[in-house]
């Protein structure tokens, strides 16, 4: 049965079983490959997207259960029109292999939307579910702090 899904402002008809996780709908049916697979069990955060502005692990949300509009890294900003968090990530040269960074940025964007100037502890708490095997954590912290300041200023 076809499901209707709005991703990054565009409506899609998806003909996949209801239980297919949103992650695999995005990646394999809609070719939105910026959202990554890392574990499939909510343990790594690589698949983080926003549904209705809330950061969620897309590997855990079945297609039929998507309750609101979906924003992926491709919808947050583009190389030509960067979101300020992406700009902060580039300014701080955060990414190493880069594989986890879509999820990191989507998680951080949800944090700043809710807590405009988070403390260091709030940053660590919010980002605790996002693994980075390359160890970019110090620069993730620095980029979030910097983006929080540009938001305020």
């Amino acid at each position: 049965m076809a499901h209707t899904l709005t991703v990054n402002g565009t409506s899609h008809q998806v003909d996949l079983p209801a239980e297919v996780p949103l992650l695999w709908v995005l990646r394999d049916a809609l070719n939105l490959t910026g959202t990554k697979y890392g574990c499939g069990v909510a343990a790594c955060g690589a698949c983080t997207v926003q549904i209705g502005g809330e950061a969620v692990r897309s590997c855990q949300v079945a297609l039929a259960d998507v309750w609101d509009e979906v924003t992926t890294i491709e919808g947050l900003g583009t190389p030509e029109a960067l979101h300020r968090l992406q700009q902060a990530w580039i300014d701080h040269q955060v990414a190493q292999c880069g594989y986890c960074q879509s999820g990191q940025i989507m998680q951080a964007a949800a944090l700043l939307a809710q807590v405009p100037s988070p403390t260091d502890a709030e940053i660590d708490d919010a980002m605790a579910g996002n693994l980075c095997r390359c160890g970019t954590y110090p620069r993730i912290r620095a980029a979030i702090r910097a983006a929080a300041q540009t938001q305020e200023g």
């Binding site: 939105l32 490959t33 900003g77 583009t78 190389p79 580039i90 292999c97 880069g98 879509s102």
Partner: peptide
């Protein structure tokens, strides 16, 4: 600036 940075921060790499 790393040549792969923008792509890796926008999900386009």
């Amino acid at each position: 600036p790393r040549i792969d940075m923008v792509a890796k921060c926008t999900g386009t790499a």
